[in-house]
Simulated scan of single mutants.
Amino acid sequence: MSTTESLAPVDLPPSSAGAPLPRVFADEERLLIAYLVNVPDPAFDGSNARSVSPATGDQSVAILAAEPYLAVQFGPPNDEAIAGHRLYGLGLRPYSAFEVRNSSWVESFEKANRVHPSHFPELFSGYRHFILTFHDSTVEFIARDFSVSVRQGAVLAALVQAIGN
Rank of each mutant, 00 (worst) to 15 (best):
M1T: 12
S2K: 14
S6V: 03
S6D: 10
L12R: 03
P13K: 10
P14D: 08
S15V: 15
S15R: 06
S15F: 03
S16E: 08
A17M: 04
A17N: 05
G18K: 12
G18H: 13
P20K: 09
L21I: 14
P22C: 15
V24K: 12
E28M: 02
R30T: 12
L31V: 10
L31Y: 06
L32K: 04
I33V: 15
I33T: 11
A34Y: 02
A34Q: 04
V37I: 11
N38Y: 01
V39D: 01
V39T: 11
P40Y: 00
D41L: 03
F44Y: 13
F44L: 01
D45W: 04
G46N: 03
G46A: 04
G46H: 02
S47T: 11
N48L: 05
A49W: 09
A49D: 13
R50I: 09
V52G: 00
S53H: 08
A55I: 07
T56E: 02
T56M: 01
D58G: 01
S60Y: 02
S60V: 03
A65T: 15
E67F: 04
E67A: 14
P68F: 08
L70F: 04
L70K: 09
A71P: 01
Q73G: 07
Q73M: 10
F74T: 11
G75K: 07
N78D: 07
N78R: 01
E80Y: 00
I82Y: 00
A83R: 00
G84W: 00
L87Y: 11
L87E: 12
L87N: 10
L87D: 07
G89Y: 15
L92D: 07
R93M: 05
P94Y: 01
P94V: 08
S96H: 05
A97F: 02
A97V: 08
F98A: 10
F98Q: 05
F98T: 07
E99R: 14
V100E: 08
V100C: 06
R101M: 06
R101I: 07
R101T: 09
S103M: 06
S103R: 05
S103A: 07
S103P: 01
E107C: 01
F109Q: 03
K111H: 10
K111Q: 14
N113L: 06
N113R: 06
N113M: 13
N113E: 11
R114T: 12
R114I: 07
H116A: 15
P117W: 10
H119N: 13
F120Y: 14
E122R: 10
F124H: 11
S125P: 02
S125N: 14
S125R: 13
S125H: 12
R128K: 10
R128N: 08
H129S: 07
H129D: 13
F130K: 12
F130L: 14
L132Q: 11
T133I: 09
T133W: 00
T133S: 07
F134S: 09
H135W: 08
H135M: 14
S137T: 15
S137K: 09
E140D: 15
F141C: 15
I142M: 06
I142N: 06
A143N: 11
A143P: 06
D145I: 11
F146I: 15
S147A: 15
S149N: 09
R151D: 05
V155M: 02
V155L: 01
V155P: 00
V155N: 00
L156N: 06
L159R: 01
Q161R: 14
A162N: 01
I163G: 02
